[in-house]
């Protein structure tokens, strides 16, 4: 748990006069489940994009999986997985076809793809639906499947952008079980969520307000520090300070 997989130092992104992310300094350790919270427009997405190598920072430094976010974005992309609620799977392809496609993109061999597909379908208990179109699966299954597909190449880090929006409470918990399993195999999870109870499942949580990281600690310590009874209270207290209401 000691090696660092994400290290950001004064990471900043400006759009003209607007500072979307201001001197973010934090690190994430291997195998950690790191919660990344903030109100809409606080700068979460901007920060995540910089870390995924999708957007060039204005200043500051950061390394992800040991690679520099300015120069080695290609290496970064090979070592991370990404899942957003919206477009992870192709609705008009079957479960197996989706798995095969993503495994193919990440350069797995045919043999590995076969093994992985069987393993994933086993893990999800999707035997009956393996040949069905993803469209016909319940949302909860889709989300679990897209998570497993996102880590099909055993990345060092997986970025999860509001992965559980709209899922029922049972499926939401099954999803977190998967995150824990992945973390157990050494995959670091970097998660954003609007469910405050989920932030309690994280090892450490950072809360962004107006482009700045206002708090970063374990949920227990945060609650102690802000003398709050729940993470929701911590979050409400901090987020209400926000001046800017805009993206």
């Amino acid at each position: 748990m000691n090696s660092t997989v994400i290290k950001a130092e004064k990471l900043t992104k400006r759009y003209g006069d607007f500072v979307a992310a201001n001197e973010l300094t934090f690190d994430v350790r291997a195998g950690e489940i790191f919660g990344f919270l903030g109100a809409n427009g606080a700068g979460k997405t901007t920060a995540m994009r910089m870390l995924c190598g999708l957007s060039v920072p204005s200043s500051g430094t950061a390394s992800v999986a040991g690679y520099d976010v300015y120069k080695q974005t290609e290496n970064i992309k090979r070592n991370i997985g990404y899942m957003s609620q919206k477009f992870s799977l192709y609705e008009d392809l079957t479960v197996m076809e989706n798995i095969g496609f993503y495994a193919g993109i990440y350069g797995l061999t045919d043999k590995e793809i076969k093994e992985k597909s069987v393993q994933l379908v086993d893990q999800l208990g999707l035997h009956d639906s393996a040949k069905k179109l993803v469209r016909s699966l319940p949302l909860g299954w889709k989300q679990k499947l897209s998570f497993l597909v996102a880590i099909i190449h055993q990345p060092k880090i997986v970025f999860l952008d509001e992965p559980t929006s709209g899922v029922d409470p049972v499926a939401r918990r099954q999803f977190w079980d998967l995150i824990y399993q992945a973390a157990d195999t050494g995959i670091t999870a970097f998660v954003t969520t609007h469910y405050m109870d989920e932030s309690e499942y994280c090892h450490r949580v950072s809360i962004m307000v107006d482009g700045n990281i206002r708090a970063l600690d374990s949920p227990a310590n945060l609650k102690k520090h802000f003398s709050a009874s729940s993470m929701d209270e911590v979050f409400q207290g901090l987020a209400r300070e926000a001046k800017r209401k805009e993206d």
Binding site: G38, A39, N40, E162, S165, G166, H194, M196, D232, F235, Q236, A239, R240, A242
Partner: peptide, 13 residues
């Protein structure tokens, strides 16, 4: 119909 989906905790409140 789901007026608070995808909205952050503060706006929901």
């Amino acid at each position: 119909d789901e007026p608070t989906t995808g909205v952050d905790a503060v706006s929901r409140k």
